[in-house]
Design a binder for these strands. Structure first.
Length: 505
DNA sequence: CAGCAGGGGGCGA
DNA sequence: CGCCCCCTGCTGC
């Protein structure tokens, strides 16, 4: 050190750091990732997770989303809570009977200090794989600690620090060596195997699904990997449902509304397939047009579909914090896409040629049959509502309906009651199904796949309009000229040109 | 052209 | 009552 230089040392830095981190977690301040587990949601910090787990670190590296949602399966909430406490505080108390389970979860999540010890492992029967392939070379990759077994019924998992021990918090030490740790090549064998496995999985999938390359490898991971690891990130939606629906609770009640910028989301998520202006429908069907606009950073399907609504809807719904998250695209429409050269060889419209209006309607009808009916409606029925006897009159407006249920729902509009809250933003809805659809904008779920191209839409109507591009159907005809539009709003804009011309003449 | 939100109709549990 | 149907309007790229 140069002469005259003073070394300023913050004696309680580590302890203070730990304390502040824990406080931030409690208050959910600056949280930037949501961990979903068994229907519960934990607002935590990427920094802490990535510091304490290479697994999370890899996830975040491949997830540019500002506030990703990580769905864990095969991990119990109590395990996760214990591990979070361990990561934030460097120590956690756990019942001895639960130790094995916790260690297993820690291994799944590659929690440093638990799954990646930095000292010869204890010969505990529950240590399992941890006892294998450990040597001093692990030190660099795992600056942490120390699993210690107590004689008491409760076992305390801790780093190197307790309230009475010298300050050598594992978490703090991990900060000190973060760069070295996270980029170290001296991973344990199990680490390497694990990472290799992950890599090979991605390679396999990218081979099977060429489009996945364009979407980013995380998409490949998220899309129903054949042999998924015990923990999945953004697992298949059906998986999420199965895992979460049955574990609804109100644990989100105490999550504060941080007043995020509602409305800032979604605009980034455009999976815009618009080719722009082609009159020839056949030329509008090239999936290539979609590919350049598929943002790899949006490839992660963060799907918290129905389960989130199930778990969170209601007046006490979690008001999470997902500010500015770049909307991922679930891209659920890939099922029928063979990818490869991008040729339109999946479910092509007949002849692949421009279709007449009548043909277009036939195609639409066929699509209606195959895609949009659920048995309760038959073809064509949806095109026009049947007139009903209107028995129930709204006391606030002229609305009347034969369906008392509709009237009750309608009344919500007048009362302003919106009992269903979005877990990701301040959005509230009077209707659960509307909230569900809204949440798609956060999760990126696009359940409605185009049969002609890889595009998928969050709403069925969007898909329906999109399909018109393929079929060439333009149902909205201009009364003043031969112009026809796919969307009503487009015709509306077109009509303005007539008005303008009229005025100019 | 696509995304999003609000809304009413209607069926099944 | 929940859920899905479809329609509509507005907005932004």
């Amino acid at each position: 050190m140069a002469e005259g230089m003073l070394s300023l040392s913050w004696n309680n830095h580590r302890a203070t750091f730990c304390h502040i981190l824990s406080t931030l977690r409690e208050k959910e301040r600056y949280t930037d990732v949501t961990v979903a587990c068994d229907g519960k949601f934990y607002q935590v910090h990427k920094l802490v997770l990535s510091t304490c787990s290479e697994y999370f670190e890899k996830i975040f590296e491949n997830t540019p989303c500002k506030h990703p949602v990580i769905v864990l399966k095969d991990v119990q909430t109590d395990e996760l809570e214990a591990l979070l406490s361990y990561m934030y505080e460097g120590a956690v108390s756990v019942a001895q009977n639960d130790l094995a389970r916790l260690i297993k979860a820690a291994e799944v999540l590659r929690i440093k200090g638990l799954a990646v010890p930095d000292e010869p492992p204890l010969s505990e029967s529950c240590s399992k794989r941890v006892t294998q392939s450990r040597n001093a070379s692990d030190d660099r990759s795992s600056p942490h600690p120390k699993r210690r077994r107590r004689e008491e019924s409760n076992t305390s998992l801790q780093g190197a620090q307790t309230s009475t021990s010298p300050p050598a918090s594992p978490r703090v030490s991990s900060f000190e060596s973060e760069g070295e740790t996270h980029h170290s090549t001296s991973r344990t064998q199990s680490d390497s195997r694990w990472m290799d496995q992950r890599s090979s999985e991605r390679e396999d999938q990218s081979t099977d699904h060429p489009l996945d390359d364009r979407l980013g490898d995380h998409t490949a991971t998220s899309r129903s990997s054949p042999t998924p690891p015990q923990v999945e990130v953004m697992v298949d939606e059906t998986l999420v449902k199965e895992e979460m629906v049955d574990h609804v609770d109100n644990s989100q009640d105490d999550i504060v509304d941080s007043g995020m910028d509602y409305g800032s989301m979604g605009s980034d998520s455009r999976l815009d397939g618009s080719g722009g202006g082609e009159e020839d429908p056949s030329s509008q069907m090239l999936p290539n047009k979609f590919e350049p606009k598929i943002n790899p950073s949006q490839g992660q399907a963060q799907q918290l579909p129905d389960a989130v609504v199930e778990a969170l809807a209601g007046p006490s719904g979690m008001q999470g914090w997902l500010s500015g998250c770049e909307m991922p695209t679930g891209f659920s429409g890939l099922e029928g896409y063979s990818g490869g050269d991008g040729s339109q060889d999946v479910h092509p419209p007949p002849q692949g040629q421009p279709v007449s209006q009548s043909q277009a309607h036939q195609l639409m009808d066929r699509e209606t049959n195959s895609q949009w009916t659920d048995g309760r409606r038959t073809t064509g029925e949806w095109q026009g509502h049947t007139l009903c006897n209107k028995l129930h009159q709204c006391s606030h407006c002229s609305f009347n309906t034969a369906d008392i249920h509709s009237l009750k729902r309608h009344n919500l509009k007048h009362t302003g009651e919106k009992p269903f809250s979005c877990p990701f933003c301040p959005y509230k809805s009077a209707r659960k199904d509307l909230l569900k659809e809204h949440i798609h904008t956060h999760t990126g779920e696009r359940p409605h796949a185009c049969p002609y191209c890889p595009y998928s839409a969050s709403q069925k109507n969007i898909l329906r309009a999109h399909i018109r591009r393929h079929t060439g159907e333009k149902p909205y005809a201009c009364p003043f000229c031969s112009y026809r539009a796919i969307q009503k709003s487009t015709l509306k804009s077109h009509l303005l040109t007539h008005k303008t011309n009229d005025h100019s003449v």
